[in-house]
Write a protein that binds this DNA or RNA. Structure first.
Ligand SMILES: [Zn+2]
Ligand SMILES: [Zn+2]
Ligand SMILES: [Zn+2]
Ligand SMILES: [Zn+2]
Lengths: 203, 203
DNA sequence: GCGCAATTATCGCTTATAGG
DNA sequence: CCTATAAGCGATAATTGCGC
């Protein structure tokens, strides 16, 4: 305890400082985050599958959860009612397990950010201020289709790409198709020919 | 980069540390636990059934108890099974609700938007294809900050404004502030001066 | 019924990354 | 660059349940 008896005068310059909060969103599923284990960022992620809670593998950003709801296949199928009952029971068991991990009081510290991101508007509120100074250079060799306020840029810049693979792929396809169809439109040609400094803002 | 770093030699400090108690609830029935035999985690579990103590098969987690009541040996009818399924499902819904409340932690006043945005999937799945032909003219009189793939355009075009009022307002403010700060950047100036036909695509 | 090996899961603490 | 903080490793607490 006498370790800190050293010289640091504990003075104002550090103590009075307001803790500058940062906006650092989380991109792992809520369950893995909770358990502090490695999440592969799929939906559902590997850990949630293993735990039998794949239905509850979710990400803090609501918008994104829906993007990756793939086959919400109804499973009544040929399984007997009895089987379904058992399935539901085991699901409840797993849910219960999951719940207990959340009920654990041991960690009441730092989930402020997660909370904030549960709201989509909040997401944008937090992101956009940084985006407005985000810069994109348009290289003649490769047309960049996105400025700071484009969806793609937001995603590329802010989110893990693996997680958003399908959306990114879709956008790529869209743009490729568009190019095939339209070629380089006059507007883009002009833009490329103009000598734009790499640091110029592209809105 | 490989710092030997500070090596605090007083390990005795460590030993004095209070033994950290971990929260790890049990999920087997109390009888099996006591007997240290394998529990199938049903209600009642097979061990308790074999021992003729079915009605004393209980679980430390209360919810699991009353949920799994009733598993008589008699063959249940389809109707009753269906009832059970429904019951279980509704129970799952409750648990999910509970889980959500945990995940959101101090769910404060930020729920209004979240709910309304629930079908965001549609935004991307259905609306985006139409966007690729959506055209925005950039008028010299008024700088348009968004192309078809920009977030703002997507929002404006696809959603009713009432829903996104606050977001839209925010974006407006952002852009205004940006303009105040930067004026028209060279890039945009050039763009404006170029004779762009009103129908040119802006990506 | 129980010792204890095997297995599972928690959480303190470090590291990497990114916001500002 | 400085630091907040997300990610998640890994030590190890705890649970399970085999086999005596
Ligand atoms: Zn995960
Ligand atoms: Zn998951
Ligand atoms: Zn049992
Ligand atoms: Zn039992």
């Amino acid at each position: 305890m006498n370790l800190e008896s050293s010289n640091i005068t504990h003075t104002d310059y550090q103590s009075q400082r307001q803790p500058k909060k940062r906006n650092r969103p989380s991109f792992v599923c809520t369950n893995c985050k909770k358990k502090k284990i490695k999440c592969d960022r799929q939906k559902p992620c590997h850990n949630c599958v293993k735990a039998g809670i794949s239905r509850y593998c979710e990400y803090p950003i609501p918008t994104l959860n829906h993007l990756f709801e793939e086959s919400r296949d109804e499973q009544p199928s040929d399984a007997s009612l009895k089987d379904e009952v058992n399935e539901l029971k085991s699901e409840i068991m797993n849910l219960e397990k999951l719940l207990t991990s959340f009920q654990n009081k041991n960690d009441q510290q730092q989930h402020q950010m997660t909370l904030d991101l549960s709201n989509t508007a909040e997401l944008f509120d937090k992101k956009l201020p940084s985006l407005k100074t985000f810069k994109v250079a348009m290289k003649p060799s490769r047309i960049s289709f996105s400025g700071p306020l484009s969806l793609l840029t937001i995603l590329n810049y802010n989110f893990n790409f693996r997680l958003f693979g399908s959306l990114a792929k879709f956008l790529d396809a869209e743009r490729l198709a568009w190019k095939q169809l339209n070629g380089n439109p006059s507007y883009i040609q002009k833009l490329i020919n103009a000598d734009i400094k790499g640091d110029d803002l592209i809105i």
